[in-house]
């Protein structure tokens, strides 16, 4: 079993093979965490840009001519009907009609929540990095000692 070694284990007493396993495990965990961090970052970016879009929309008056994107490269002329309400996707395929102010507030709350989670992940990642450095250092010492023992 390669379950987490308790914190009290002295790394110097662990076999090199196990250390390697531990290092690989930590590496995997770090990769997962950094993938999550990237996903959270991009979600935060999307909420941020949605919030800004609502803010800009709220300043427009109804009847304002505009070009609606049908695809990323095809636009058709349109007029703005009303900017007094926006529809927010709150998840699980539920949508809610809110005022633009509520909409930006929602986006800001989401961004803050994601930032908090990113901070937490960052902390865990720093901690894992620290442990990994220790493990790698001890592993290198052990391997060097082994080599010396073999040569003599």
């Amino acid at each position: 079993m390669t379950s987490k070694e308790p914190q009290t284990v002295d790394l110097k007493t662990v076999e090199p093979q196990q250390l390697m396993g531990l290092r690989d495990q930590l590496e995997g965990e770090m990769q997962n965490l950094s993938a999550s961090a990237t996903a959270l970052q991009s979600a935060a970016g999307q909420f941020g840009s949605s919030g800004r879009a609502i803010e800009r929309l709220a300043h427009q008056e109804s009847g304002q001519p505009m070009l609606m994107p049908l695809t990323s490269s095809l636009y058709v002329p349109a007029t703005l009907d009303s900017a007094s309400n926006v529809l927010i996707d709150i998840g699980a395929s539920y949508y809610v009609e809110r005022s633009p102010a509520d909409g930006t507030d929602y986006c800001k709350r989401k961004v803050n929540m994601l930032k908090d989670q990113l901070d937490q992940i960052g902390q865990v990642m720093r901690e894992k990095q620290r442990i990994m450095q220790q493990v790698t250092a001890v592993l290198q010492q052990k391997l060097a000692a082994q080599q010396r023992a073999q040569q003599s």
Binding site: I90, G91, S93
Partner: peptide, 27 residues
């Protein structure tokens, strides 16, 4: 997690708020 977030949003709404559900392509 997702549904808990949705419930929190729904509970914070005023009673006359319009709520839609996406069923297939329509709201």
């Amino acid at each position: 997690n997702e549904n808990q977030m949705v419930l929190k949003e729904l509970e914070g709404l005023q009673e006359d708020s319009a709520v839609y559900k996406l069923i297939g392509p329509v709201l």
